[in-house]
Computed example of a mutant assay.
Amino acid sequence: MSIEGTVTIPKQVMARRVGEEVVLLDLLTGTYFGLDPVGSRVWDLLAAGHSLAQVSGVVIDEYDVTPEAFGKDLEALLRDLQARGLIAIKTAT
C-alpha cells in the first residue's frame, strides 16, 4: 500500500469514542469493531480528512514508534478495516 493512498469512510459507518477507544458500527451489516488507543488516533485523523502520509507523520511524532514498524501496523489495520467494509482505500498509481 502506498503512503500516497487515500482512505474514505463509507456513509453507513458510524464511530463513537468510548474512553480512549473508538467503536465502529457498520449500519448495513450491524457489525461492531473496536479500535485501541493508537488505532483510534489513526481513525480520528482519517475521519478528519488527513492523507496516509499525514497520518503516519502525526502518529510517528506522537508515539514512540519507528516509521518501519508503524508502516507495517498501519497497513495491517487498514487492510483489516477494508476487509470489514469500514473504509475504502485508493492507492496511488
Results as ranks from 00 to 15, higher is better:
residue 1 M to P: 03
residue 2 S to Y: 07
residue 2 S to T: 09
residue 3 I to T: 08
residue 3 I to Y: 03
residue 3 I to Q: 01
residue 5 G to W: 02
residue 5 G to K: 04
residue 6 T to G: 08
residue 6 T to H: 05
residue 7 V to W: 01
residue 7 V to K: 02
residue 8 T to R: 12
residue 8 T to Y: 02
residue 8 T to L: 05
residue 9 I to P: 01
residue 11 K to H: 09
residue 12 Q to H: 15
residue 12 Q to G: 04
residue 13 V to C: 03
residue 13 V to Q: 00
residue 13 V to I: 14
residue 13 V to G: 03
residue 14 M to N: 13
residue 14 M to H: 14
residue 15 A to G: 02
residue 17 R to N: 08
residue 19 G to T: 07
residue 20 E to Q: 15
residue 21 E to I: 10
residue 23 V to N: 08
residue 23 V to Y: 08
residue 23 V to I: 14
residue 24 L to M: 10
residue 24 L to N: 08
residue 25 L to H: 03
residue 25 L to V: 12
residue 25 L to P: 03
residue 26 D to M: 14
residue 29 T to V: 09
residue 29 T to S: 15
residue 31 T to C: 05
residue 31 T to M: 12
residue 31 T to E: 15
residue 31 T to Q: 15
residue 32 Y to A: 12
residue 33 F to T: 14
residue 34 G to M: 15
residue 35 L to W: 10
residue 35 L to V: 14
residue 36 D to Y: 13
residue 36 D to Q: 09
residue 38 V to N: 01
residue 38 V to H: 03
residue 38 V to K: 15
residue 38 V to Q: 13
residue 38 V to T: 11
residue 39 G to Y: 02
residue 39 G to I: 07
residue 40 S to F: 02
residue 40 S to P: 02
residue 40 S to H: 07
residue 41 R to E: 13
residue 41 R to C: 05
residue 41 R to L: 12
residue 43 W to N: 07
residue 43 W to P: 04
residue 43 W to Y: 14
residue 46 L to C: 06
residue 46 L to F: 12
residue 46 L to K: 05
residue 46 L to R: 06
residue 47 A to G: 03
residue 48 A to R: 08
residue 50 H to K: 14
residue 50 H to I: 00
residue 50 H to C: 09
residue 51 S to P: 04
residue 51 S to L: 00
residue 52 L to Y: 00
residue 54 Q to V: 07
residue 54 Q to K: 13
residue 55 V to S: 04
residue 55 V to T: 10
residue 55 V to P: 01
residue 55 V to M: 04
residue 57 G to A: 05
residue 58 V to Q: 11
residue 59 V to G: 01
residue 59 V to C: 04
residue 59 V to Q: 02
residue 59 V to W: 00
residue 60 I to K: 05
residue 60 I to W: 08
residue 60 I to S: 06
residue 61 D to I: 01
residue 61 D to S: 11
residue 61 D to F: 07
residue 62 E to Y: 09
residue 63 Y to Q: 13
residue 63 Y to C: 10
residue 63 Y to M: 11
residue 64 D to L: 11
residue 64 D to C: 07
residue 64 D to T: 12
residue 64 D to P: 02
residue 65 V to F: 04
residue 65 V to N: 00
residue 65 V to W: 05
residue 66 T to I: 04
residue 66 T to E: 07
residue 66 T to K: 07
residue 67 P to A: 06
residue 67 P to E: 13
residue 67 P to Y: 02
residue 69 A to K: 14
residue 70 F to R: 00
residue 75 E to F: 08
residue 75 E to H: 10
residue 77 L to M: 06
residue 77 L to G: 02
residue 78 L to G: 01
residue 78 L to N: 00
residue 79 R to Q: 10
residue 80 D to V: 12
residue 80 D to I: 10
residue 82 Q to Y: 11
residue 82 Q to K: 14
residue 82 Q to T: 06
residue 83 A to N: 13
residue 83 A to S: 14
residue 83 A to H: 10
residue 83 A to K: 08
residue 83 A to Q: 12
residue 84 R to F: 05
residue 85 G to T: 06
residue 86 L to A: 00
residue 86 L to E: 00
residue 87 I to D: 00
residue 87 I to M: 03
residue 89 I to F: 04
residue 90 K to H: 13
residue 91 T to V: 11
residue 91 T to C: 06
residue 92 A to E: 09
residue 93 T to P: 10
residue 93 T to E: 09
residue 93 T to L: 14
